[in-house]
Design a protein around this nucleic acid. Sequence first.
DNA 1: TTGAAAGCGCTAACAT
DNA 2: ATGTTAGCGCTTTCAA
Lengths: 357, 357
Amino acid sequence: MAGRIVTSVEVARRAGVSRSAVSRCFTPGASIAPETRDRVMKAAKALGYRPNAIARSLIAGRSRMIAVVIGYMENQFYPALLDRLARDLQDLGYRLLLFTGAPEGPSDALFAEILGYRVDGMILASTLLSSALADECRAAGVPVVLVNRTTDSADVSSVVADNRTGARAVAEFLLAAGHRRFGYVAGIASSSTNQDRETAFRERLAEAGIDTLLREDGGYTQQGARDATLRLLTRPDRPDAIFCANDHMAIAAMDAARVELGLRVPDDVSIVGYDDVGPASWPSYALTTVEQPVEAMVSAAVETLMARIAGEGAPERTVRIPGELVVRGSARRPVEGVTAVGGREIWRPQSLPRSAS
Amino acid sequence: MAGRIVTSVEVARRAGVSRSAVSRCFTPGASIAPETRDRVMKAAKALGYRPNAIARSLIAGRSRMIAVVIGYMENQFYPALLDRLARDLQDLGYRLLLFTGAPEGPSDALFAEILGYRVDGMILASTLLSSALADECRAAGVPVVLVNRTTDSADVSSVVADNRTGARAVAEFLLAAGHRRFGYVAGIASSSTNQDRETAFRERLAEAGIDTLLREDGGYTQQGARDATLRLLTRPDRPDAIFCANDHMAIAAMDAARVELGLRVPDDVSIVGYDDVGPASWPSYALTTVEQPVEAMVSAAVETLMARIAGEGAPERTVRIPGELVVRGSARRPVEGVTAVGGREIWRPQSLPRSAS
DNA sequence: TTGAAAGCGCTAACAT
DNA sequence: ATGTTAGCGCTTTCAA
């Protein structure tokens, strides 16, 4: 007799009360006599009764479930994000319904399913959201927050790193170290994150009078980044500094340069990434990178989502989280501007002498 | 007017049919006239109607949700596992409810929540399951499958790698390469995975007449592994081969040896891991390791779970998935026994000359 | 404080 | 093929 579902009626019968009384025992703040409560709880325990969350959801009209869609997991940033998300949501009494979609975003079928579950909200990480789907969410009254992506049509909330500022800092850092020939290993070109990082990097270089940026597509994959790096570094005019759109690719770039090409990093070529994922700090890579603070991003995402769940009034907004440029060993260090803060070394752009540009 | 919930009555009214007719349109295999169906579907689309999965679950008595509890995400093996799990479950029409618990297993409160959602099944990865909780699951009729852990009380299904065979292979491999002084960096001692790997490794060594195994606790964390490795390698009688309970720790061990101690790997010390996670194949590590085939493990886990969901008859079982010893550069190579298979080199224990032991 | 009654949105007999 | 009726397990007015 596995799976006998114990209902509140059975508990009620056993405790000699009504179903309502049982219900009240499991409703925080309901008025129930302590003595009745004891009897009910005892009966519940004996029977192994738990209120059915499904039935509860049906009445409440909200499921206390949040759908989370993640594009891909290989890049360590996403598991880290997911981990914090799960914890934060758990702490707030929400359940996390996980979907793995393609980076292009959830398919229509997937989307229909998600909406069918009447989730209270939706978090999309590393995926695009077509405006058609965004509209459907709005119509269904399901708040959405994008993480690590923005949309142009600014009517959907999102939380991103301050990618432009970060990428500019990388440019300044590299310039200050004396680099003049630059390469960029791009992520998926249509992603806002790549666009922001690439554009800002290029802009800052241009401000310094450097208009040539060798660009190769890495597509956010390690294989792609390896190939891109190889193409970059076997050119006659090979760059002496490469900025990769994220750490995941920067690691592959380092391996391509060091192991496949026999180059020394940073002596022959400086490599800088973005995100500061776990492996970036592994001594064998010691990647210089811009951090993308997972905790802060998750907090902001959850906060934004909760605000929109709670009230109709909460407006859509884009939150930009700043991150430090963490200096390690994969890029040549400028003479000045690197300071030790809290056990790690960071680069403060403002301390860069004007003359550097 | 965000969030207006569109019910089947409204669709019915608009299409001029009954609620049942609407329901039948969304029930595969129900008998409905094509013409009616069209009218209903049109109305549904116009109103933005989707059947409420919650209500459906309430009737069906099953939620088509599977709870997945993962102990920690830092170790790349778990994100990889989760990713496949999400896909496989999605393909079968199940939703994945994610919980992040401590390695000691889900807390009672968490457990109550999970059960409250009337999940159809439960997958626990890298967590322990107390027999009390196992009993609750049985009582509630919720099938459970452990992944990457087993319990002694063999009344709960589990899927694990063939850890004993794998660990024996590591011992033979290292012996064949001429090693005689061994170290072991342990995971959490109480985990079945660590126990199996450690015991089998030690046993095989003993069979070769080697009774000394230097052991340090790494606790499955990189910090722990680093410290353990440092202790191991700064002893006067330091080992010339170290087996780490998993890749996650082996990577930290390599860094400790090479970067902190200036040792050469594998010239000064061989390091072998377990799992074959992504970073193991990164050229900077090129970790020799035993694979723990994620796909196969997930398939087995899902299959086992589905069997138990489908029928009462399906027995609890423990599935052991074999994995190859993948030879890369972090350990000295034996003269014989390494063969290239499908783009990688693997070690076949059976080709080890008897004399080696 | 407690119980009776109504109903959340849907599907599954049972009629027709 | 379609509509009617009942009810999944629970919470929540409303009375008492």
